Amino acid sequence: MKALFITTLLLFCGAVSAQPVIGENAAAALVSRALQAEPLLWLPFPMPYEIERSSKDKDAGLLDALFRHGLLQRDKQMKMAEVEEDGRRKRKVLATWIYDYPLAHREQGTQEGFYYGTGKLKQIVELSSAYLVGDYYYAEAYIQWYVDDLQDWVKDPAFRTARTLRRSLESFDKPFEKRVYLQYDGDSWGFWSGQPGLL
């Protein structure tokens, strides 16, 4: 009877401290849910943004394209300003555009930036075994992912100068890569958005 008790106790202790295992399919499901739950936002400029109407620089082109696609509104403004021309300072009337998010966007207190898609898992390249850090087990997954639900406005040629958007367009064929972490809380595995051991 004593031997049976000791054997049961040893088996129970072994089960409690056993290293958890996570398979690739389970890891893929957790990573997929986490990627798709996080909208991708492009934030090229703080708003509101004022720029001369005659400007031909990169920012002017991007702002105009965002306006054409209904992602920004713009208002005309005329103002006096001091400018430097030929090494001399003088006052001049400036005609500017003031770009801002549409009123409905501002009233809702929506997060800044322009939604352009969500991440989607292409494949798990490498999945580590579980390892203990502090009180929790973690597993690292090195993944390839691409942008899903890509918005039509991203395809506008005006955005070819924006590397994030350009890379997003080609991301199915040339996927992004990153390392993500999964955490075992003693009961089940979940996606971990921090570094192992950091709460």
Rank of each mutant, 00 (worst) to 15 (best):
P48F: 11
P48Y: 11
E50P: 08
E50T: 15
E50C: 07
I51M: 14
E52Y: 10
E52A: 13
E52L: 10
R53I: 04
S54H: 08
S55R: 11
K56A: 15
K56V: 13
D57H: 10
D57I: 08
D59S: 15
D59I: 09
A60G: 07
G61H: 12
G61D: 08
L62T: 00
D64T: 11
A65W: 05
A65F: 06
H69L: 03
L71Y: 03
L72T: 00
R74T: 06
D75M: 12
K76N: 06
K76I: 06
M78V: 10
M78Y: 14
K79S: 11
M80E: 14
M80I: 08
A81D: 14
V83D: 02
E84N: 06
E84S: 04
E84P: 02
E84D: 06
D86A: 09
G87W: 01
R89G: 01
R89A: 01
K90A: 05
K90R: 11
R91T: 07
A95N: 12
A95H: 11
T96P: 02
T96W: 04
W97K: 02
I98G: 03
D100K: 15
L103Q: 07
L103C: 01
L103T: 07
A104L: 14
H105Y: 14
R106S: 09
R106E: 08
T110M: 00
T110P: 00
Q111K: 10
E112I: 10
E112P: 12
G113A: 03
T118M: 07
K122S: 02
K122N: 04
Q123V: 09
I124E: 05
E126S: 14
E126I: 08
L127A: 07
S128T: 10
A130H: 03
A130W: 03
A130I: 01
A130Q: 04
V133P: 13
